[in-house]
Design a protein around this nucleic acid. Structure first.
Length: 372
RNA sequence: ACAAGGUGACUCACA
């Protein structure tokens, strides 16, 4: 059975969930481990429904499968379900607690996360690093450092989280100092610092470190690509992009932005058409570039045929109509929008006032919901 | 020989 499970795990972690499922059903017998592997794989691919089915279908649930299900809820943003499950657990261990901790953090409930952290009976390096990471991402350097200093043991992930804490707080000097003095480096350590350097504008330093990396993986390459793309450096962006041994949706979107930002509509379009996968961001990048590059007709028809639209797509369209001065369409679009945010309202307000329709602007202002 | 928790990349729309 263990051999079968190894095979299951191999397929499941390599993204072949379909094959894993076939293996699962054709196995001579299944253990708790088999169920857990599949449940975890479903959760990581965002397939919470099947994860739940596996969980419910499992005959004798052990602590691990309970915890895996909490992690599944946590990873997919279902805080309520995670809490309910956690509260009804017969036994908990440090992994259950930590999964719950990150569930709160993921939902933006920092106070609950902090409370949960304090309630954990016995901490380990992972639970402490989890809390450190939460503080790091929310820019609370002092808190992060406090945990770091109080930890009896630290591993490379702890140090990496601390790099992020310094980075988020804009302390490049301490980040690089920590990088130099930490016990070991892995790909995450390198790319965290490189990313920080590109964000603070020290491109030369970033490039030097990129060259020094023992191995340039997809993410570090993408960091560099993204940096070139954001600076409108199409040539170097293309160079990095073409040299990447493997690419993914993130790298394609980055290259797409690089093209559209410089108005290379033909290249953008052929990349876009070629992309094996697209997400809403890809569509919005392309949509916005059409709308902003005198291709209103194409843009509008893209808007109408997109697989999905969000508030950004709507605001993009709204802005385009305000720029052509077609107030018929502006009003129509604004009325049809399923949601509006502050950006939608300010788009309207500035369009009306730019065209000296001050009474309309005033009326619009009075219609704005309070929270804006 | 097998399973669960913590760290790095794109996030585009108004101003």
């Amino acid at each position: 059975v263990a051999a079968w499970n190894s095979m299951l795990a191999a397929y499941a972690t390599n993204g072949h969930l379909d094959i894993a499922l076939r293996v699962f059903y054709s196995m001579p017998q299944r253990t708790a481990v088999s169920w857990t592997i599949l449940l975890s794989a479903c959760a990581h691919t965002g397939n919470l429904k099947d994860a739940k089915i596996f969980f419910d279908g499992m005959p004798d649930k052990n602590l691990i499968i309970w915890t895996t299900m909490i992690a599944a809820y946590s990873q997919n943003g279902h805080l309520g379900d995670a809490t309910a499950l956690f509260d009804s657990m017969p036994v908990r261990n440090i992994l259950s607690w930590t999964s719950m901790l990150t569930a709160y953090a993921q939902a933006g409930q920092l106070d609950s996360a902090r409370k949960m952290f304090q309630d954990i009976p016995h901490h380990d390096v992972v639970s402490c690093t989890a809390m450190l990471g939460i503080y790091a991402q929310t820019g609370r350097l002092e808190k992060a450092k406090g945990i770091f200093d109080s930890m009896p043991e630290r591993d490379i992930v702890t140090y990496n989280a601390m790099l992020t804490a310094y980075g988020q707080a804009g302390d490049v000097a301490m980040a690089t100092h920590t990088f130099r003095t930490m016990p070991q480096h892995d790909l995450v350590s390198w790319s965290t610092v490189i990313s920080l350097l590109t964000q603070t504008g020290d491109l030369e330093h970033a490039k030097r470190m990129y060259e020094m990396m023992p191995l340039q993986d997809l993410i570090s390459q993408t960091i560099l690509l993204s940096c070139y793309s954001q600076h409108g450096n199409l040539k170097d962006a293309k160079k990095v992009f073409d040299q990447m041994p493997a690419q993914n949706l993130v790298s394609w979107n980055n290259m797409l932005s690089a093209y559209t930002q410089r108005g290379y509509m033909r290249d953008a379009k052929s990349l876009f058409d070629w992309m094996p996968q697209k997400n809403l961001l890809s569509w919005n990048i392309m949509l916005n570039s059409k709308l902003q590059n005198s291709r209103l007709e194409e843009g509008v028809s893209m808007f109408l045929t997109m697989p999905e639209r969000d508030l950004v797509s709507w605001n993009s369209l709204l802005t385009a109509f305000t720029q052509t001065g077609d107030f018929q369409m502006v009003k129509k679009t604004f009325a049809e929008m399923p949601d509006k945010n502050l950006i939608s309202w300010t788009t309207m307000l500035s369009a009306l006032s730019r065209n000296n329709l001050l009474h309309d602007a005033k009326a619009m202002f009075d219609r704005m919901p309070e929270q804006n």
